[in-house]
């Protein structure tokens, strides 16, 4: 099953490489990874998505917790949560294509953030599934370049991950 694990860790050099290293060392896979400092400059928040059965996920969270830099973590997929990913895509758009692309962008509530006479740069955010669907709607032959931010997430309701 796909899981979103959110980690609060010391904002120290080397901390990120320890997390990434753990995954390759123990043969766990990382589907996506995002990391940035938090409102407390001494902490970073790292969100990663991974795939595994319950046993594997348990080992992943236990081993992450063992890392000295990791302060706290939560498996967001255990409860209801909001997940978002940002997509930037350059799309070939000439002639009749221009309107068609624009319609798709509207349907997916995206924005065109840059234009030339031949292309649009489009920004869409949402769940990874939604972004997949948008890319599919555009069709392979119109896509020139894709950048995805990786998943970020936060629990719904009053639950918070903090120290």
């Amino acid at each position: 099953m796909r899981r979103i694990i959110s980690v609060l860790m010391e904002n120290e050099p080397g901390a990120l490489s320890r997390v990434v290293g753990l995954f390759s060392q123990r043969g766990y896979n990382i589907e996506s990874l995002t990391v940035a400092p938090t409102e407390d400059a001494t902490l970073s928040r790292l969100t990663l998505t991974t795939i595994g059965d319950d046993h594997k996920i348990e080992q992943i969270t236990k081993n992450l917790n063992k890392l000295i830099d990791v302060v706290k973590l939560v498996d967001l997929t255990e409860g209801s949560h909001i997940e978002r990913e940002l997509l930037l895509v350059k799309v070939r758009a000439t002639g009749a294509q221009r309107d068609e692309v624009k319609r798709s962008v509207d349907i997916f509530r995206g924005q065109i953030v840059d234009v030339t006479s031949n292309m649009y740069t489009v920004q869409v955010s949402g769940t990874s599934e939604k972004l997949d669907a948008f890319l599919q709607a555009l069709g392979e032959h119109t896509i020139m370049e894709v950048v995805r931010s990786g998943v970020s997430g936060i629990a719904r309701g009053e639950k918070i991950l903090s120290i």
């Binding site: 046993h55 348990e58 080992q59 236990k62 917790n65 063992k66």
Partner: peptide
């Protein structure tokens, strides 16, 4: 003492 050793 190490939870990761348990049920590994």
């Amino acid at each position: 003492v190490d939870p990761a050793s348990i049920s590994k």
